[in-house]
């Protein structure tokens, strides 16, 4: 926390700058001597409400961080004391005038985080620390220990500066997640290559499935690599597909019974494929995806009846009073 660097809350900078201009000839408080008196500190306390309302809302640790010891050089005589009082009076007037100006004119944050306020910086650091895993706003609040309005403001600022971005979490769509601009969200967040904005890209998947089916029909028997090579050589899609993606598509097509997976025998149609290698082909009886023709149970109402467990010969639901049967036998 101490290593925040040169950027400090604006109002403190203003105060110090003004006071330093008169009292310490532009030296930073940290650069001044170790002897100190309580007067300047009292002055600072008087000046604080005029600087900004934000300062009172700042958490104690932040105040501690910025209330650097302010120790003016030791005074030698009463004359010099008088001069100093005059100077201070003048300077305080000037300070008030300038602080009003400063309040109106908010300093523009510089790109790269140079002009960020402290809370922005804290929030940004926490977000950055999560790298490609992104962070949920609730977790951000816990980690930074900042109130909601400040966090929201910070997030807005940081987003406006292009330092962070919002990402959709594939599994928790209702929760806002933020990630630093320099990172790409991880697979856990996006759901992998098949997801766009947290939603499954079904159109793309279906398109790939169709293409794969056409390729397998054309090639008759093909391995996953064979299908991928076909894709590459013929440039069938605008988007780039990886070999892994093609394998995943083929696997899902097997589960869909659109194609079947077989092991190459090296004979006949498999002559170009090494023996024992997994390859894909279309089912001989055409598209099996509509389910087996011989499904005995599905051809009768009881096979898919949602009330089969409640059905008894003499019960309220029975085969003689069954509406599904009546509908089925209505010809």
């Amino acid at each position: 926390m101490v290593s925040l660097g040169p950027a400090k809350p604006t109002f403190y900078c203003v105060i110090n700058k003004n006071k330093n201009a008169n009292l310490t000839h532009g030296l930073n408080p940290s650069q001044r001597g170790t002897h100190g008196r309580p007067q300047p500190l009292a002055l600072r306390h008087e000046a604080l409400p005029a600087c900004s309302g934000e300062s009172r809302e700042s958490p104690p640790h932040r105040s501690l961080l910025h209330l650097q010891p302010f120790r003016p050089p030791p005074l030698q005589s009463t004359c010099s004391k008088f001069i100093i009082v005059q100077v201070l009076c003048l300077s305080s007037c000037k300070f008030i005038r300038m602080s009003i100006l400063n309040k109106r004119k908010k300093p523009e944050p510089k790109p790269g985080g140079g002009g960020l306020v402290e809370s922005d910086r804290v929030v940004l650091n926490v977000i950055k620390s999560k790298k490609e895993m992104a962070i949920w706003t609730r977790d951000l609040k816990k980690e930074t220990n900042l109130p909601d309005p400040i966090i929201n403001k910070c997030l807005k600022n940081l987003q406006a500066l292009g330092l962070i971005k919002e990402v959709a979490h594939v599994q928790m769509k209702g929760r806002k997640h933020y990630i630093a601009a320099e990172f790409e969200p991880s697979k856990e967040i996006t759901g992998g290559s098949w997801y766009v904005d947290g939603n499954l890209d079904t159109a793309f998947i279906d398109q790939l499935k169709d293409l794969c089916l056409k390729i397998i029909r054309k090639l008759k028997v093909a391995t996953a690599d064979g299908v991928y090579d076909f894709f590459k050589t013929n440039r069938l899609t605008n988007t780039d597909c990886t070999s892994q993606q093609i394998s995943e598509i083929l696997r899902s097509m097997v589960l869909d019974n659109m194609i079947i997976d077989v092991t190459s025998t090296g004979l006949g149609e498999y002559h170009s494929i090494p023996i024992g290698k997994l390859c894909y082909r279309c089912p001989p009886a055409g598209d099996l995806s509509q389910g087996p023709i011989t499904g005995a149970m599905v051809s009768i109402p009881c096979g898919v009846c949602p009330r089969i467990r409640q059905c008894t010969p003499d019960g309220l639901i029975s085969p003689s009073t069954c509406v599904y049967y009546t509908k089925w036998l209505d010809f």
């Binding site: 869909d256 389910g291 005995a296 599905v298």
Partner: peptide, 22 residues
């Protein structure tokens, strides 16, 4: 398995069929 899959397909739909086969 084919017989049971056909029941799943008809009763619960294509996505359930895919999940069941997996």
């Amino acid at each position: 398995a084919q017989e049971v899959e056909s029941i799943v397909l008809k009763k619960y739909g294509r996505e359930a069929y895919r999940i069941f086969r997996l």
